[in-house]
Design a protein around this nucleic acid. Structure first.
Length: 278
DNA sequence: ACTTCTCCCTGTGGGC
DNA sequence: TGCCCACAGGGAGAAG
């Protein structure tokens, strides 16, 4: 559920607090949080310096020079920065001690209730960590090419919502912002991508960019304390949602009650009247 | 080659 | 009060 805006909020916080910091100690408290790593994480990280904190779509990484610490928040991952010993969460999966650029000792806790997230120490290839190499550019990147992404989308036979969720086509969009972008563009989630006109897909991608920019300006979306910035604070965008979570409430365009339907094992929220099926 | 489905995981909350 | 189950959902990997 942390999608692009929520991950960007985390990235900014990490950059503010930990740029120039050096890892002093690392403890993996739950092996699933570091799955896929052969060497002990501490052996890889201790002594490494954080040059910058970067992001593509929902993926985050600490730039350590040639290598990176890749971070995926999954559904419930949090990156909490604080004074040493401040995090007491039973869901803390990895704990790191660092010395920041001012020489202060800091703690970085990876807290993840549902354990879908993970850290992975990995080389960088072409400026991104290995697991990010296959990830498409996101709509907030400078060089995001709306026209060519729209062309790619129109070659897909899947429902448009499934295509929006495919991180290899366009990254950063999850279930919430997919529903919001489709509502804003007035397109039904079940429409086959190949049935859409180029200008409809361009409008949809513009809507996705717009809704994610607005969410970012409000600190992201959160329904509970699971989705927070590095200081543990929630964003306010949930009060601005037009479709997601509004089952039975009137569509803000036409007044028709918003419908929630099961769609590829997830919930879709949409207006049955003003989101075009054809 | 492309698309769709299943499973991973844990806490919450509704129904009985 | 307690038990069961649906639900939240990104992505890896299998199945179609």
């Amino acid at each position: 559920m942390p999608e692009l805006p929520e991950v960007e909020v985390v990235r900014r916080g990490l950059e503010t607090h930990l740029s120039g910091a050096t890892f002093e100690d690392v403890s993996v408290l739950h092996p699933r949080a570091n799955r896929g790593q052969d060497a002990p994480l501490a052996d890889l990280l201790v002594g490494a310096r954080i040059d910058a904190v970067r992001r593509r779509g929902k993926y985050l990484w600490l730039d350590l020079g040639d290598d990176a610490l890749y971070v995926h928040l999954g559904m419930s991952g949090q990156m909490l920065v604080g004074d040493p010993g401040v995090c007491t969460s039973p869901h803390m999966r990895i704990h790191a001690s660092l010395t920041d650029s001012a020489g202060q000792e800091r703690e970085l806790a990876f807290v993840d209730q549902r354990t879908f997230g993970r850290w992975l120490y990995t080389p960088q290839v072409g400026g991104v960590p290995v697991p990010v190499a296959h990830v498409a550019h996101d709509p907030l990147e400078e060089d995001f090419d709306v026209v060519s992404v729209a062309r790619l989308i129109r070659r897909k036979r899947s429902p448009i919502k499934s295509v929006l969720l495919n991180q290899e086509v366009v990254s950063g969009i999850g279930n919430i912002y997919a529903d919001e972008a489709l509502w804003q563009a007035g397109i039904a989630p079940t429409r086959r991508a190949s049935s859409l006109l180029q200008r409809e897909v361009v409008a949809l991608l513009d809507a996705a960019e717009d809704v994610m920019r607005r969410a970012l300006a409000e600190g992201g979306t959160s329904f509970d304390s699971l989705y927070v910035n590095v200081n543990g604070e929630s964003g306010y965008f949930s009060r601005s949602l037009n479709a997601y979570g509004r089952e039975g409430e009137p569509c803000r365009r036409c007044g028709t009650p918003i419908v929630r339907e099961r769609f590829t094992n997830r919930s879709s929220h949409f207006c049955p009247v003003c989101q075009r099926k054809r």
